[in-house]
Amino acid sequence: MSDFSASGLACRRGERLVFRHLDFALPAGGALVLRGPNGSGKSSLLRILSGLLPPAAGTLSWGGTPIADEPELHRDRLHYVGHLDAVKPTLTVRENLRFWAGMREALDEQAVTDALARFGISALANAPARFLSAGQKRRLALARLLASGADLWLLDEPTVALDAATIVLLEGIIAEFRAEGGRLVVSTHAPIALPDAQRLDMAGYAPAQGTLPVLEALL
């Protein structure tokens, strides 16, 4: 099996247990949509999946191998798009994208050009990124997905600041990515069309008592 899977994941933020007993298995080409109210741990789960945040309990594995055993390999195959766009205002749009493609040891000028074209920001390629609107910055952040060549996309609220047409564009790009065997985990409040996506309702994994269980255990 070559699933990207989680078993018994738990997340702690400060004194608060955010979720526990979380399991999923994501096959190649699969998409996982995280649902739940604010504070239910969608962003935290994505950070755990990326390896930024160590889980309080449970294991993540890729093709049966625990990710904790090979963190570099995991970082190499994923790309994470968080709430922040990580766009440097003084660099041009193209330089911003080239930098991230180069950080992944895969600097392919053609891929950079294609990624910009795909997200409709080719015309701005040589403009300093400080002139971009919020939506354009978001598109630049998403363009990194294509330039990175990653197998696993982790998207935290990707549709924020995007107009309807761009959301349709993103849906198309995701569909192509999945058709090539890419995996996707996405948290979103906006309706986004992801055929055959698994749904994970975070509310189901909240601790039974909404109070501070970790603190209680401390007494």
Binding site: G210, T211, L212, L215, E216, L218, L219
Partner: peptide
């Protein structure tokens, strides 16, 4: 410090 935390939990319970 532990007692201080205990007070926090009790206050939290009261609020909730």
């Amino acid at each position: 410090r532990l007692i201080d935390r205990r007070i926090q939990v009790m206050q939290q319970r009261e609020i909730e």
